[in-house]
Design a protein around this nucleic acid. Structure first.
Lengths: 195, 195
DNA sequence: GAGAAATTATTCACGAGTAAAATACCTGTT
DNA sequence: AACAGGTATTTTACTCGTGAATAATTTCTC
């Protein structure tokens, strides 16, 4: 699929009304992605580097989060995927089957199986077989699991808040809104784009 | 900087306020993270779920990108980390040592070693020992490697553009700007926050 | 200059995720 | 009732990244 290389959209996409010049440093300040984009432009001045400025930054932010954001989690001996699983059980408030956990957690069934094994051994979740359909299992938090999640969550949120404290409330709100719009589009339309 | 950010709060960007308990309800519309946040609020109405709306969405976007965004890459038999490595060599325009590649690529030295081994076997990069310091190696793209990168890049960017096409140019510009600000903060201040 | 400390790159053992096969079970059709 | 086909979950074989140890070399310090 050869999409029309944004002819006019080319360099205008990002710098639209706000930033000062088109010559150097066309985008916001000094993060590493900006430098990367600058290098690419020097080598391929014809390409539309707009997407990089969004996707590259999202990927980089996510990578940094994974390294640092989860400090309170790791202190409790949990990885982020493990916490996501426990959190899914906590926030839905009821039992979930492994398949539902996989869907809720955006991970594969096999990964859920492995995590459940570990979490069961640690006494954080329990399993119960369905009486009608003996293929399915129902997983629920133990008291210890629920207490662990409830104990971690506030400090985790406080930590995330600190991580984001560089932006003001208005900017965070805007960012959340824009990301929500993007994500809604991605989730709705991405499966179909898998060309 | 950022164009006239939404007057008042950030809830207007996407749409419909929802039917929740708390007074301020910036949860925008219809992505999965919004639903997750809603569930958390029902269970813990006292917690500030603001950070989730940003961090959760960034992580989720990154996960979706990893699944889908790289379609043109995989068609060329490259993973995203491999392409990042080749891209670093291409965009800097000169040779890089493995350590520099690790820094540029945000990955560990061991990972770079492994990738270099594979890419060398495929004839995409070459290595050369430093004459002054015999510990260091210098890595450069072969002609085939450079052609591969240059061949992939346009379609990869076009693909990314399509992925982002749900947002308009202004929104993408704002998003890039906000993410750049966040990232600059994270990169500058995150190492110190590792408590 | 000789030995200590630092730096560069690689190797190793391991943990975690995945896709695909395997297992166990249910349901509808005949 | 029996069989085909579908679904839920687990197992298997494999890949990939990581941190810690290792090897090789340079640089610092006296």
């Amino acid at each position: 699929m050869t999409a029309t290389q944004g002819p006019s959209a080319g360099d205008g996409v990002i710098g639209t009304p706000d930033t000062s010049s088109t010559a150097d440093t066309p985008v916001s300040g000094r993060d590493t992605v900006a430098e990367v984009v600058r290098q690419w432009r020097a080598v391929h001045p014809d390409l539309d580097t707009g997407p990089m400025e969004v996707i590259g930054r999202i990927n980089r932010c996510a990578a940094l989060f994974q390294q640092a954001e989860d400090a309170p989690l790791r202190r409790a001996g949990l990885t982020r995927p493990e916490f996501d699983l426990l959190g899914a059980l906590r926030r839905t408030g009821h039992e979930l089957t492994p398949s539902e956990l996989a869907r809720e957690t955006f991970s594969s069934g096999a990964a859920v199986t492995k995590r459940l094994k570990q979490l069961t051994e640690r006494g954080l979740v329990e399993r119960r077989g369905d009486t009608r359909d003996r293929r399915v299992a129902h997983v629920r938090l133990t008291d210890a699991g629920r207490e662990l999640v409830d104990g971690i969550l506030p400090s985790q949120l406080a930590y995330e808040n600190a991580v984001l404290s560089g932006l003001g409330p208005v900017e965070l709100g805007d960012l959340a809104g824009l990301l929500g719009g993007l994500l809604a589009q991605l989730e709705g339309r991405l499966g179909a784009l898998r060309a």
